[in-house]
Amino acid sequence: MTANISYTTEDISKLLKISKLTVYDLIKKGELPAYRVGKQMRVDASDLEAYKARAKSGTAAAALKVEADEPSYAPQARFRPAVSGDRSSLVITGQDMSLDILAKHLERRAPSRRPLRAYVGSMDSLIAMYRGESDIVSTHLLDGDTGAYNVPYIRKLLIGHAYVVVTLVQRTAGLYVQRGNPKGLQGWQDLAQEGLRLANREKGSGARVLLEEQLRLHGIPARQLLGYEQEETNHLGVAGKVAIGAADVGVGIEKAVSMVGGVDFIPLIQERVDLVMMKKPENLGWIQGVIDVLQSESFLGELRPIHGYDLSQTGQIVFEV
């Protein structure tokens, strides 16, 4: 009996062996009916079985084969309409909690829109936009050669497309160290210290790119850091590893320190988290709506009490094509 069974997007991702972003894309197109329960999107088992039956006819199966055959970080252009049933869906990718607050405000302001949240890193978010699988992406990627955030990467990945880049928040990034900083770490150059155990982030995340750029700039071989290949999927995971003594150092944002005991923070850089949105004619209305929300007192009022945010540039357009 499947009448009372439903699945989360993560469940479907595992069952069909596709990414969560592809699941969201199927929901956006109306191929996979979904509904919201709290903050989660769910799909009834009967609707999943119906989709799988259609897939056997060839069209959906071909789409899944493309997904399975694509190597990581080798995006293929697959732009699709952002409509699911009778409600327009907006897929918002990124991991910062301010995006959850943004999604809530967008749904209040425009009930006809259905925000869908995908919790992936900065690089994967941009690749999802290139593929047409995401509508609003957040990114915080440092270009070590110029010291600029985000725009150098966006220009390379979204070449030939019209888009707008708007600041979401600024926040302090640096090193997580054990309480009392027993290794005496003060800056990026200290990562050259022999025998350091690292709690690392996943490939493509902003924190991972920040670390890799600093290692490159300071001539420190990544292989020198013990545990470099062991990955955590969020800042709390990295800070937690350092706090329990499983690692000596990790890279992340200051905000996580207030949620994890037994860890100190060495501030090193002010990073900018930007939103990127494609300037298609059908998107222009809701893009202005997003900017209006970012600049609204109600949105800013919810972010101000959260430790570690600088909102001085929130809602400002930093780049536009």
Rank of each mutant, 00 (worst) to 15 (best):
Q193G: 08
S205T: 13
G187W: 13
G187V: 02
V209A: 01
R208T: 07
R197E: 04
E194P: 06
V209G: 13
E194Q: 12
E213W: 15
L185S: 13
R197N: 04
E202N: 09
G187C: 07
R216I: 08
Q186T: 04
D190G: 08
R201V: 10
G195V: 02
L215R: 13
L211Y: 01
K203A: 11
A199T: 11
G195M: 14
A199C: 12
L185P: 00
G184V: 02
L215M: 03
E202T: 10
R201A: 06
K183T: 14
L198M: 14
L185I: 03
E194L: 03
R201W: 08
E194Y: 04
E212A: 05
A207D: 15
D190W: 01
Q186L: 04
E213T: 03
R216G: 10
G184E: 05
G206W: 11
A207Y: 11
G195D: 08
E202W: 07
V209Y: 14
G184M: 00
R197K: 10
G195K: 12
L215A: 06
R197W: 06
E213F: 14
G187K: 07
K183N: 05
K203S: 11
V209Q: 08
R201C: 12
A207P: 12
R208K: 12
Q189E: 15
S205Q: 08
L210H: 10
G184N: 00
L198I: 00
